[in-house]
């Protein structure tokens, strides 16, 4: 379990990004951090990842800090390396033997529908495919927690919808914790069990909305109701 308590962060120029950010995330949960641009949600994700130190408050894990995967808004691939070599990176850094790393990376690519593209270079792939490589890389080392920073924001609608469904499938299969940063109401309502709505800068939690579990149906009244709930909370947080 992860727990943030009164976390504060200032940018180097003195602007307060986060002030009094507190929430907990249970193991295996799918939680969205939703908020307007510039509310500090990406900063929160970087603090959780340990890429930035907080200026105040605490970030605690029950037990040791778990294995993490991170997916950025951009695919953030190495352009000089094949899809396979990109996915293999976390394993290479853990000194996993080459043959085993190759096998696991190939399996990770196949799971996300890129089985035939192991030898392709990033520039030969579409935006959606590059993002799939990025997700395969994040999952190849079997992380306990997956941090995603608006990963699908730059994709077209069909690619985005397909990736949403694939992400849900991988989450159900692997059972890792997912913290998903987004500024899309419908995406947060579609994906998550719980939506944490953030205020504009300096960011803190304005609403904590639990959504009904179970499979999602994009045109169902239930999904529309979830979206209405989240949307109302977001408007209230901005006011």
């Amino acid at each position: 379990m992860l727990s943030l308590s009164h976390v504060a962060k200032r940018y180097p120029n003195g602007t307060e990004a986060l002030a009094g950010l507190s929430f907990t995330v249970g193991d295996g949960a799918f939680v969205s951090l939703l908020g307007p641009s510039g509310c500090g949600k990406s900063t929160a994700l970087r603090l959780i990842a340990g890429l930035l130190p907080p200026d105040g408050g605490t970030i605690q894990w029950s037990g040791a800090k778990p294995e993490m995967g991170f997916v950025f808004q951009e695919p953030t691939l190495m352009p000089w390396a094949t899809a396979l070599a990109n996915v293999r990176l976390p394993l290479d850094l853990q000194n996993v033997p080459r043959a085993e790393a190759e096998t696991r990376a190939e399996a990770a690519l196949a799971r996300i529908g890129l089985g035939g593209f192991a030898r392709a270079y990033p520039r030969e792939l579409s935006g959606g495919m590059k993002m799939r490589v990025s997700i395969a890389r994040a999952l190849v080392a079997q992380p306990k927690i997956l941090l995603m920073d608006e990963p699908f924001a730059a994709l077209d609608e069909p690619a985005r919808a397909a990736l949403n469904d694939d992400l849900l499938r991988l989450w159900r299969e692997d059972g890792m914790t997912v913290i998903f940063v987004t500024h899309s109401v419908s995406e947060s309502a579609y994906l998550s069990e719980r939506v944490l709505v953030m205020t504009p800068r300096p960011g803190r939690i304005a609403a904590d909305i639990a959504l009904p579990p179970g499979p999602r149906e994009r045109l169902s009244p239930q999904f529309l109701e979830s979206q209405r709930l989240v949307s109302t909370a977001l408007q209230k947080a901005a006011a």
Partner: peptide
């Protein structure tokens, strides 16, 4: 070099 890529390397303890 891509800052995010470097952050990713750090995340994996490079």
């Amino acid at each position: 070099a891509d800052f995010n890529l470097i952050d990713l390397m750090r995340l994996y303890g490079a």
